[in-house]
Design a binder for these strands. Sequence first.
RNA 1: GGUCGCAUAGCUCAGCUGGAUAGAGCACCUGCCUUCUAAGCAGGCGGUCCUAGGUUCGAAUCCUAGUGCGAUCACCA
Length: 594
Amino acid sequence: MALLELLEKKTVEIVQSLFDIRLDHVDISLTRKDQQGDYTIMVFPMLRHIKGNPAVIGQQIGDHLLRHEDLVASIEVIKGFLNVTLTQEAFIADFNTMLQQANYGKQPVDSDAAGMMVEYSSPNTNKPLHLGHIRNIVLGYSTGLILEATGKKVVKTQIINDRGIHICKSMLAWIKHGNQITPQQAGVKGDKLVGDYYVKFDQEYKKEVATLVDKGVPEEQAKKEAPSILEAQEMLRKWEQGDQETVNLWKMMNGWVYAGFDITYRDLGVTFDSLYYESDTYLLGKDVIAHGLNTGVFFKKEDGSVWIDLTDDGLDEKIVLRSDGTAVYMTQDIGTAVQRVRDHHIDGMVYTVGNEQDYHFKVLFLILKKLGYKWADNLYHLSYGMIELPSGKMKSREGTVVDADDMIQEMTDTARAIAQEQGKLEGLSHQQKEELYRMIGLGALKYYMLKIDPKKSMVFNPEESVDFQGNTGPFIQYAHARIKSILSKSGFDHTQLQASSQVSLTDKDILVIKSLQQYPETVTAAARNYSPALVANYLYDLVREFNSFYQNVPKIVEESDAHLKQFRLLLCYKTALVIKSGCALLGIEVPDQM
RNA sequence: GGUCGCAUAGCUCAGCUGGAUAGAGCACCUGCCUUCUAAGCAGGCGGUCCUAGGUUCGAAUCCUAGUGCGAUCACCA
């Protein structure tokens, strides 16, 4: 049993015997650093059940706690705070329990139970991935891993927006100006090539609009009547009719884009278990609407369009089927959700999508609930804020978008420059070094994205770029590498996972143990809140605690007290394991040397 | 205008279900490498936790109102 639970149990027992009152919960937190003690038992909340002076009650409980000599060393009561100092034996016993758990902090996945689907990335196929996608991908991927760590089976997916007017724009510009060029011939990634033609289309379109406006056509009208946009719309019609030539071109260019995306995903170290294509799903949902129309969830207007009235829930009326009977975005998402539950053994879904779609998902979830799906109670929109540049929003048309591949490359380059300056990598081959630079660069990038609360929009400054000092990925990776170095230099035997109770610990030792104790509950909280940021910030605290221990304790390798040396090496060992485990949940790798 | 989100140090951010004197990093200033890895450690400087009420023994945290910023309110996706 963890120390905290043990302390809570003892406290409940004491309160029961002293006051004949059964508390179902005791408020215990870590004692402030400026106070004497390890844990603080809050007496104030008990006053609701026990009448009296909080300081006196605290003292009474404290006196009884002191009888558990193997657990409590001393107590101090300040107002309604009962500060308890535990014995070293208690900490060592707790630490030994931790050491026995190979998968400390994680629960085994129950593969028979219904799982959770996590959707992320979900790009359009008309342009390459950018920094916003990186935030999305890294967030969704990590959240999936965190859910998995709490025993939930996870199915990672993305919906690829592979059809629509935006794709046709790229296709059209390629036909006109591409001279049949392929990515191989151009020497660029497929997604980049297609993106270039998307930009080209837009430039041409803008010129046409300007020309029309010069001729006296109102701007709104010009935007609708420019030849390019009419052509694109015509192409979309052909695609929808299954025109062979159009479909073939569409397939070819999307293929180029997928090859490009695959490289970016590989570089980011993320994978998917299943894929959904909008071209397959965009007609889904009509049967669900028809059913809901019968059961009275939806209603039909005179023009034939189908709606749902959500005004009782504080929302608006929302269209779910056009008057011509075709699907809208909402129809599609309803159908896709239902389809996914049919396809996989899941009872819930997480959608990683930007916060500009908050309203859409609120409506979607509500509709699914009204349709009576049980799993609709288990839907979560993992909403995240936009990434802005100091100059404002990223705009692809103005070329201010920070490209994902460029970003990864830049991070790797920075890691290389810093590492070469430090010159600590003797003994590694060129290839190993490059692999390390990539690991550090990506670690910096991912951590930078994940340490911030998803809800908040973030400002990204390309000039200052991502930091490698302080609260960063490399800070954490560095601690891991340093521990590995200590362990190998000391000849640590990782088959002897038992610390002797015959050691005298310092505050620094105990602070590290306390920090390690927090790991399991951090993972649980991160899963409950769908927030990798909790894991990221926990790791930072752990590493700071460890670094302080490392720099303020005599060299472990030279320690003459065999028991103490063994204990400290075990502390290093377990810390390294937790760092590695926690980083893995963030999708960040840790090196053994850097 | 309606709805949703955010507001904490010069900048970027923590602060879990309310707990003691609000914490980090960056920046600026001091110290610490003849090495268990200084991408680090020890310390200094820096705050009206947006404002005003309320609930509470206790509020950055919960409630109400207001202010500012952002998003959204398409028979687009």
